[in-house]
Design a binder for these strands. Structure first.
Length: 282
DNA sequence: ACAGGCTCCTGCAGGC
DNA sequence: TGCCTGCAGGAGCCTG
């Protein structure tokens, strides 16, 4: 499931391969109900525009789109007129392919580019979302929560102050921290030595500091390794990540803790499978 | 206001 | 062997 590191990896890959390219045509499947912007409006709004930049905000991939791009200026010098926002949900993929690449089942969007490439959105479970914003009318996209890679300690502590829910549930709340999902919540809590069920508002300053540090380290290392390939995650070029080899608790139920050999336990918290070491996490 | 539960959807694992 | 059931989860929505 794509979380911050996977989305960051995909956004970087797509940026490298489509920056400056122009959208010639946009096709959408009939499974359009979940899309935030109706497909007809997306097709119309995308055609003719060029990619100025592609970046990550929370778990969203934001494509900054400019005018046709025939004025000779570099992409970064042109002002975005629209944003195409891609949320991958559980099973979404954004792939840069050739037109000859076989179209796999559950392909919901195909953007033909002037270079001859295609940008494809594939999503079997259809939890993903596509949105087109016209920046001349709509506001620029912003994640509701803070970025766990850049947040400072005092701001981090304020997020959880007075909150009675479990720290694991708080980490998954995108309006607090944007980008953390089930894998990296479990892994970060392990590295910080904190039990997932602990009440968020009752964590000590020292624990909050450890948690912020653990989030930063785990997410940064996962980005360096190209994300975690559980189920069948791949980046924009179809390449798998390697961070799943570094997982200490996620999907390791019953296996010995890498630090103390105690079997990893699994509980259900906030409706999610939650993995922890009963010895290392207090 | 806030917390928790339900829902969407498909692929896969496990049981009989 | 093959079918069927249940489970996985991000986030929006509803309820308590």
């Amino acid at each position: 499931m794509p979380e911050l590191p996977e989305v960051e990896t995909i956004a970087r890959g797509v940026h490298e391969r489509v920056r400056g390219d122009q959208i010639v045509d946009a096709w959408f499947s009939r499974h359009s109900e979940p899309f935030k912007t109706p497909p007809a409006r997306q097709s119309k709004g995308l055609a003719g525009r060029s990619f100025l930049a592609v970046h990550r905000t929370g778990k969203h991939i934001v494509c900054e789109l400019g005018p046709s791009g025939r004025d000779g200026r570099a992409p970064e010098e042109r002002k975005p007129e629209a944003q195409w926002i891609v949320h991958l949900g559980m099973s979404g993929r954004l792939l840069v392919t050739t037109p000859e690449t076989p179209v796999v089942p559950h392909t919901h969007a195909r953007l033909s580019l002037a270079s001859g490439r295609e940008l494809r959105f594939v999503d079997p479970r259809r939890f993903g979302r596509l949105e087109l914003r016209d920046l001349r009318k709509d506001e620029s996209f912003g994640a509701p929560g803070a970025d766990p890679l850049t947040i400072g300690l005092s701001e981090f502590a304020v997020l959880f102050r007075g909150r009675k829910l479990a720290i694991k549930a708080a980490l998954l709340n995108q309006s607090l921290l944007a980008g953390v999902g089930n894998i990296y919540a479990d892994e970060s809590l392990f590295h910080a030595g904190i039990r997932p069920r602990r009440v968020a508002g009752r964590l000590t300053r020292a624990e909050l500091e450890r948690l912020r540090g653990a989030l930063h380290r785990v997410l940064s290392q996962a980005i360096r390794l190209g994300g975690s390939s559980v189920s069948d995650y791949v980046d924009a070029n179809g390449v798998r990540g390697f961070f799943q080899l570094e997982h200490c608790v996620y999907l390791r139920t019953g296996k010995p803790c890498r630090q103390c050999q105690t079997p990893i336990r699994r509980i259900v918290l906030a409706g999610r499978g939650t993995h922890f070491c009963p010895h290392c996490q207090q």
